[in-house]
Amino acid sequence: MDRLALDVAHLLAGGLVLVSFMLLYQDRMTGLVNNFALHALVVSLSVAWQAHIQHAPHLYITAAIALIVKAIVIPLALHRIIVQLGIHRTIETVVGIGQTMLAGIGLVALSIMVMLPITAKAGTLTQQDLAFALSVLLLGLLMMISRRNAVSQVIGFMSIENGLILAATGAKGMPLVVEISVAFSILIALIVIGVFLFRIRERFDTVDIHALHQYRGEQL
């Protein structure tokens, strides 16, 4: 495989990790959603490039699904939800961006340390993709546990799914059926989560998860 193809794949996958960090850094709601759209765009570009260098046309469909559903439909829906919930101007109080970033760096280091030895026999491309995909996944989890706002948690969840797509395309051999069903289930999840968001808001007048903990009687 020629050098340029690998380099571009590396560039796009590395870009995805960087956008994950931008998601962690961003504390405004609308900025967060736009950032997530960028995340999905980078994923779809990365998948399209993989389709090109692996000569796997069905991956183009995966890329198109990622582009249409996650870079356009879901961000628009989230924008609507945010406006309807009236939280489009709020700045989230993230506890310690610095610490979160450091933890994120640690997670990236961890996933590289874990993935590189395991996948030593696979090709360079697979190796890179899996290492980056695991980092994106862990960063998404970090985002879910470090944010208190339910909408940011949803975005963290969606970014985990982007990481999974990257892993699947790198591993050469995810059937299209699986991909379509995953994309579909993500859409369903968005609808369910959207309904829940409004229920939470009706019940507690806020989408801060903190309120749920207090309701359960936990001391925080």
Binding site: L6, H10, G14, V17, L18, F21, M101, G104, I105, V108, A109, I112, L116, T124, Q127, Q128, A131, F132
Partner: peptide, 17 residues
């Protein structure tokens, strides 16, 4: 600082490959 760290880390992925 984060960008610097990340640049170094990502370098190890390519150097290993």
């Amino acid at each position: 600082l984060m960008l610097g760290f990340l640049a170094t880390l990502l370098l190890f992925v390519t150097l290993a490959g």
